[in-house]
Design a protein around this nucleic acid. Structure first.
Lengths: 107, 107
DNA sequence: TTGCAATATAGGACTTGGTTCTATATATTC
DNA sequence: GAATATATAGAACCAAGTCCTATATTGCAA
């Protein structure tokens, strides 16, 4: 028998529908679908070298200050923007937060 | 990392908006804004294994869900809490955000 | 009872991000 | 000119994070 799921908010339902669409399209598997459905998190997208540079310049800070916000070295930021190193995991999460909410979100 | 000067983080958000507005209005220049940003960042303190476990349990989520928020694998969270791996850099920044503002701050 | 899913511990092997160092270049400011 | 801030460039090192498997426990449903 099918269980009717109820959602805490319209936003949750909206995200669920988005993720369900990704699942139907084969972009994510069923396990990932359950995880997103449960956690109701916004997906963390990738950042290219130019994306990062554009983001930093949008916030109008130097590499060094940007690095202070992210709690990484200034060299790392330079390497991200030149495509030498590609941020992943927690770093992508921080970049996503900055992109969505601005640097003040991670103060 | 360079040493980060300290100011109270809660006061920062409101002041930052004021300063940003002054910058937009041309009252202060970009250099002053950068220096202000640098001076007002809150320090990122270390997290012990038990600190992380206590933080996660305070937020009442499983290791798996906590990992989703941090955008790391569930194995990583398990290893943090057992002292096998010690989070640093961007990961510490995220943990600090969660400790100060709760999991909803990094949704 | 039996079976299944979720949670968490445990450990091994691998990849690569982040750090640190040095050198170079260009503005800008004193 | 000297000094400072910004950014590129490259090399070497370490460990965080990933992925994999195995084990154990709990709770729930058939």
């Amino acid at each position: 028998m099918n269980k009717i799921k109820t959602y805490k908010s319209d936003a949750y339902a909206a995200i669920h529908e988005t993720m369900a669409g990704m699942y139907d399209a084969g972009v994510i598997d069923k396990k990932t679908m359950r995880e997103f459905d449960e956690a109701c998190l916004t997906p963390v997208h990738a950042f290219s070298a130019t994306d990062i540079k554009a983001l930093r310049e949008r916030e109008e800070v130097s590499q060094r200050v940007f690095a202070l916000y992210m709690n990484v070295s200034k060299d790392s930021v330079s390497q991200w923007e030149r495509g030498i190193k590609k941020p992943a995991g927690p770093t992508l999460k921080l970049l996503s937060l900055v992109k969505q909410k601005g640097l003040s979100a991670i103060t």
